[in-house]
Design a protein around this nucleic acid. Sequence first.
DNA 1: CTGAAAGCGCTTACAG
DNA 2: CTGAAAGCGCTTACAG
Lengths: 339, 339
Amino acid sequence: MASKKRPTLYDVARKANVSIATVSNVLNNKREASQQTIDRVNEAIRQLGYSRNESARSLKIGVSKLIGFIAPDNNPFFTEVLTGIHEECQNYGWQVVVSTSEESESRQNELLELLAAQQVSGIILAPVTSKLHVPEKLRKVPIVLVDREIENAHLPVVKANNFDGSYLATDTLIRHGHSRIGIILASPGISTTLQRKAGYLEALKRHGIEADEKLIDYGGDYTGTKTQISGGYNAVVKMMNLPNPPTAIFATNHLLMIGALKALKEARLNIPGDISFIGFDDHPWQEITDPPFSIISQPAVEMGRQAVQALQKYKEKNIVTTTVLQLELITRGSYRSIT
Amino acid sequence: MASKKRPTLYDVARKANVSIATVSNVLNNKREASQQTIDRVNEAIRQLGYSRNESARSLKIGVSKLIGFIAPDNNPFFTEVLTGIHEECQNYGWQVVVSTSEESESRQNELLELLAAQQVSGIILAPVTSKLHVPEKLRKVPIVLVDREIENAHLPVVKANNFDGSYLATDTLIRHGHSRIGIILASPGISTTLQRKAGYLEALKRHGIEADEKLIDYGGDYTGTKTQISGGYNAVVKMMNLPNPPTAIFATNHLLMIGALKALKEARLNIPGDISFIGFDDHPWQEITDPPFSIISQPAVEMGRQAVQALQKYKEKNIVTTTVLQLELITRGSYRSIT
DNA sequence: CTGAAAGCGCTTACAG
DNA sequence: CTGAAAGCGCTTACAG
């Protein structure tokens, strides 16, 4: 019995009385084979339970059916992006090697290297900084940026309109009478932070409100998942102890939001009675909390899908696309008008 | 310039003036090479920016450095398990091909097949049913079961003590005076559901309470993430419309819990004033909700780590381990005593 | 329409 | 301590 090792092309060829080239052609739908041959080959494949050794194929043709996805942390946002990547990859027969850089640039470079060594046919990357220098030797493997972009990278990117989203949230709060609005941002080194900050500042400016540095906190200037939660927590504690604390808070990612709410709760501040709040990233919990939270919602699953499509276009036609998805404000019960 | 393609062993060998066998040996720390040779080789590797083509290696030795992880859905519990898998894999230099079966057995079998074709060195599987028949041709690749087990599989398994956890939750509610306790379970086809149900029934029995079929709902007997949330929702709606509704509800996974809470909220039932509640799986949101929720907490990250270790033992020493992790009840504010 | 043969980049006995 | 050579299982010109 050939139960010890998996059958190879040779086994199939022998059984079907054809050459291995013919089997390979049938397998890949290349060239015309007579229907009779095709049937014989397929029957042999079925009987032997043959499936292709992808390592051999990768070695020969230089790329595997794998793509890599490098997320910076375990923010549920990236879990959703991964869902989108998975969905779309089914259309291309790709499988996904997933890893987390934990916001470390050296870890990220190591992961890129490991993926390249696996002959992945592409990488979807949410980079840890906006100034990544992609090592020369990785230039061969197509990289698509997702969520975050890199200056002058000349790489396809799929991102959200963070400026507009942040502007929208801030503008809305201002129109509800708020002028002291605290914003909690993630690490200043990434593009999303920069753009979310810019949108906030622009909204203030349009309304003639002067920005107060004390109300701008990089609570998430740390690595990893847990530290971002404490970052949001610390930011709120700091702001609420100001002589002139904010009347509204805008937390610009889901982890920061959770930390911020924890601090608000501990301070026994009522939302929206004592303070208005807008968060980031939709999540089932937000409909069952009291109050339900208003948030800037990102099309995270769609972002994953689009990233795969962008990768496909980049690989096949060398087209460098920039896709910008719109953010929307979902208003529930966490902010109110003040006078 | 060799910028077109990545350097190979031959390039390194030529540069270092040795044979490819020697380079390979240095690379794998095999046999003794003179320190001088080692240095020359390493210097050549560095200069060329060489890194091994893992496809070639996999082809030659029959296994890659990849392992597969198949989750049944996007429950955040499995995201945490994945975190643990990632952490532990770093110790072995493994990378993880992640995929979701969406509770479909045919999809699961397809994924197993695809992973085997990639020459993965092992698979960590949360199976969609407790009666999986692993296809003969997959017998070559080591599989470790995580979270859910399979009858007579003779495979390593890392799971939680679901019986005890469920007993504990039910017993606690009974001791607080509840006798009509609704339980919301996931699909009856998986081991965790069976065990959680058994723990519930046993606790009732010990206290001489007769089980009421109407209070046992397989809200999650659907596939996928969203349908489980609506499953939990529907279960609560049904139970609360009973002539004699429950005074407490135990939702046995995170998705079911979210759906259940949504229904409770819509019915304007106060927790724990009108109804007591115990959920499943800890999550940062649970500390900031009002009330904060009591839950049965699973060591999800640890489960992932242990699964990787079990895989390692299975591969290296052919040891089939069964690891049972304890669940604990975290009491916050969502249940109370009644008379 | 089909086959013989080269070669992808490694690892590993084997010989020296 | 080091090298020459076979071979892992495929794909793909090339020849017929």
